[in-house]
Design a protein around this nucleic acid. Structure first.
Lengths: 142, 142
DNA sequence: AGTACATCCTCTAGCTACTGTAGATTCAAG
DNA sequence: CTTGAATCTACAGTAGCTAGAGGATGTACT
């Protein structure tokens, strides 16, 4: 039986995050010690590892909820899990494309910066006037 | 003189977002009409455009605050603005590297999915067992 | 002048995915 | 039996907005 701290260490999760996952129903309520502290078994360890791994791959908690549900029903079709992963892949590719454009623009900004005074700073100039951009970036950072 | 709605349209910002920027001190309090509605001039339009453009390039509101401050003092050294932009560029490059790893992993997941039952679904298997990953992805989505 | 309707106002709450804090309790080692 | 680390609950806070309620204002038309 694992304490919440040990589980946290084993999965690279913060203790509070585990309690948060329990609160939002992503993890089941675990058993408790006589004194009321949470005690976990291997099933919970596996489930939390699954969640963390999916988070590292960028899946949202909602998507993970769906994946866990699929994982709990081995007779269901694989198609749904595949669809979720494909959706995730598309998102990742979109983010990469946006970042690519941002990188180009930022590189140009810092490259052109002569290091003089802000009055004619390239960085600020570009920010002031979008028309100076060579790329059409449209998304926010992510 | 522009109403908040017109300013919103011209800058591609939501009305609430403009009020939010004002609230957190990113935009100055504008003048008001007799009835108490906000009225904006060209200075505000420029400032908001600057903010939006920087946001599109992924700068945080805190970084934008710094950049605006530099922009307000044309005699200051350009070095700070350059440093902020370089920091941003580094972040973008880090995010890209992480996404690259995630994309590889996701591609492998969906490619290997045979479309059978979830019991032997490749997607779920990979999520269950990190050791099946070829890449070491460590960041969350962004 | 009256009326209809879009836009505006303030205020509050909600979103994602956590993270941090305070004050009290429990556990394990010596 | 004490000490100190870990745990408990509950609540507040983070970024960067977004949405809604309930009411006031602005403008165009008759």
């Amino acid at each position: 039986m694992l304490t919440i701290g040990t589980l946290a260490k084993k999965t690279g999760t913060k203790v509070q995050t585990i309690r948060y996952y329990e609160q939002i129903g992503l993890l089941p309520e675990p058993g408790r010690s006589a004194g009321g502290q949470r005690r976990y078994g291997d099933a919970e360890l596996d489930r939390l590892s699954f969640v963390r791994h999916a988070r590292q791959l960028g899946f949202s908690l909602d998507a993970i909820r769906e994946l866990l549900d699929l994982s709990d029903h081995p007779d269901k079709s694989c198609a749904e899990a595949d669809a979720i992963a494909r959706r995730q892949l598309r998102q990742v590719e979109q983010r990469m494309a946006r970042l690519e454009a941002l990188r180009t623009e930022l590189q140009r900004m810092v490259h052109d910066c002569g290091g003089g005074q802000t009055a004619n700073c390239r960085v600020l100039e570009v920010l002031r006037d979008h028309s100076e951009c060579l790329t059409d970036h449209d998304g926010i950072g992510a």
